[in-house]
C-alpha cells in the first residue's frame, strides 16, 4: 500500500562552508515523513538532527547550505513544493504558514520587550495584511485555549512574567497561529521537569490527533519517543542509522547505536546492572572515519566495518538500518 507522505527527503546533504574547508553536517539523508503521524529523530548533540530539521524550512543557519538532494513537501491541497529550491517571497510565505517550528530554549525565542499578544499580532500581520484586529484576537485566544492558557491574562503579559512551562506552551500556541500542516519540535521539554514534560506532551499528542497536524520531534530522550512517537529515526554523525516504526525498532533494534542508546537510559523498572554507557565519545565532523561511522565505538565491529560503508538495509517493510548485521537479518527475514 502506498503511504501518504507529507515530506519526502531525498539524499539531502548539508555542508557548512568555512574559509579553508567545509563540514558535512548531513550526508545524503533520505527519510519520508508520513502525514498525520509523529516522527522522532533521536541522536546526541552534534548528530545533525537540528540541521536536518531546519532544511524542512530551508532556514539552515549560516554558513550552512543545502548542497544536494530534494526536500519535497506535499501539501494537503495536492501541490508539491521542493523546499530546497524555494527563495524570496515564496519561501517567506511558506514558512510558518505550512510548516512551523517550536525552537529549543523557548526562553530566548520570545521577544522580551513585547507582550505575547503583540508578538502574535505581528506574526499574523506579516503573513497576511488583511487580518483584522478581531480576527487576530479570536485566533490568539483559540490557540492559547488549545494549550490551556488563560488568554485574558497571558496576551497582555511579557515573557519574563511566565514560567518555563508556560513559555513553552506559548511557543506551541505560536506555532499553531497560521494553521500549519506540519510542526517541527526541537527538544520541546528539555529544561522542564517531568510533570510539566508529561503535560506538554499530552497537549502535543492532542493537537496531533484532533487537528491532524503531522510532527517531527527532535530529542535525545528515547523514553519520550517510546511513549509518543509513531516512527523513530536514529541519527549519528550526520547520517541516518536506523529508521522504522517505534514498536519494531524497540523490539528488533538492528543498529548497535540504537541498542546502546536504549541500554544507556536508566528507567524506574529496568534492571540497574544492565545499564551501560556507549564507550568512546560522540563523533566530531573534523575526524575522518573510514567505513561505518560508528565502528570505533561498536562492540560488534568486524574487519569489513572499517573498510566499507554500509547502506540502508531493509529489515521489514517498516524498518531499515545502516549496518552489515542488519543486512544479514534482512536476508534471513526474506527467506
Amino acid at each position: 500500500m502506498e503511504k501518504d507522505y507529507i515530506f519526502e527527503l531525498k539524499d539531502v546533504t548539508i555542508d557548512y562552508k568555512m574559509k579553508m574547508f567545509s563540514l558535512r553536517a548531513n550526508d545524503q539523508v533520505s527519510i519520508n515523513l508520513e502525514r498525520g503521524k509523529i516522527t522522532a529523530l533521536v541522536g546526541e548533540s552534534g548528530s545533525g538532527k537540528t540541521t536536518l530539521a531546519t532544511s524542512l524550512l530551508n532556514c539552515v543557519s549560516e554558513p550552512g547550505e543545502i548542497t544536494g538532494g530534494n526536500v519535497l513537501f506535499h501539501s494537503k491541497d495536492g501541490t508539491t513544493l521542493d523546499v530546497a529550491k524555494l527563495s524570496g517571497e515564496d519561501l517567506r510565505l511558506f514558512r510558518w504558514a505550512k510548516v512551523s517550528m517550536v525552537f529549543q530554549g523557548s526562553q530566548s525565542a520570545l521577544n522580551p520587550v513585547m507582550t505575547i499578544g503583540a508578538q502574535f499580532a505581528e506574526t499574523m500581520k506579516e503573513h497576511d495584511r488583511r487580518f483584522t484586529k478581531e480576527q487576530i484576537k479570536a485566533k490568539s485566544e483559540e490557540v492559547l485555549g488549545i494549550v490551556n492558557l488563560d488568554p485574558d491574562r497571558v496576551l497582555s503579559m511579557y515573557p519574563h512574567e511566565l514560567s518555563g512551562g508556560m513559555k513553552q506552551r506559548v511557543m506551541i500556541a505560536f506555532s499553531l497561529l497560521l494553521d500549519p500542516e506540519f510542526i517541527i519540535l526541537d527538544e520541546p521539554t528539555t529544561a522542564l521537569d517531568v510533570i510539566t514534560q508529561d503535560y506538554i506532551f499530552n497537549i502535543l499528542k492532542d493537537i496531533n490527533v484532533k487537528r491532524g497536524i503531522s510532527m517531527l520531534l527532535l530529542t535525545h530522550d528515547i523514553a519520550i519517543v517510546s511513549k509518543y512517537a509513531d516512527y523513530i529515526g536514529v541519527m549519528y554523525g550526520g547520517k541516518l542509522m536506523e529508521f522504522g516504526d517505534v514498536y519494531s525498532v524497540f523490539e528488533k533494534k538492528s543498529h548497535p547505536y540504537t541498542e546502546g542508546l536504549i541500554k544507556a537510559t536508566p528507567s524506574l523498572i529496568c534492571d540497574i546492572s544492565e545499564i551501560e554507557s556507549i564507550p568512546g565519545h560522540s563523533p566530531s565532523f573534523m575526524e575522518k572515519v573510514s567505513g561505518c561511522l560508528f565502528n570505533p565505538r561498536c562492540k560488534y565491529a568486524k574487519e569489513e566495518c572499517s573498510k566499507e560503508v554500509p547502506e540502508m538495509y531493509e529489515i521489514s517493510s517498516d524498518h531499515c538500518a545502516r549496518c552489515f548485521r542488519a543486512k544479514k537479518k534482512g536476508e534471513s527475514h526474506g527467506e
Binding site: I195, S226, S267
Partner: peptide, 10 residues
C-alpha cells in the same frame, strides 16, 4: 511522570 523506554509499557 517518568516515561519508560519501551513503547508497549509506556
Amino acid at each position: 511522570a517518568v516515561p519508560i523506554p519501551d513503547p508497549k509499557k509506556s
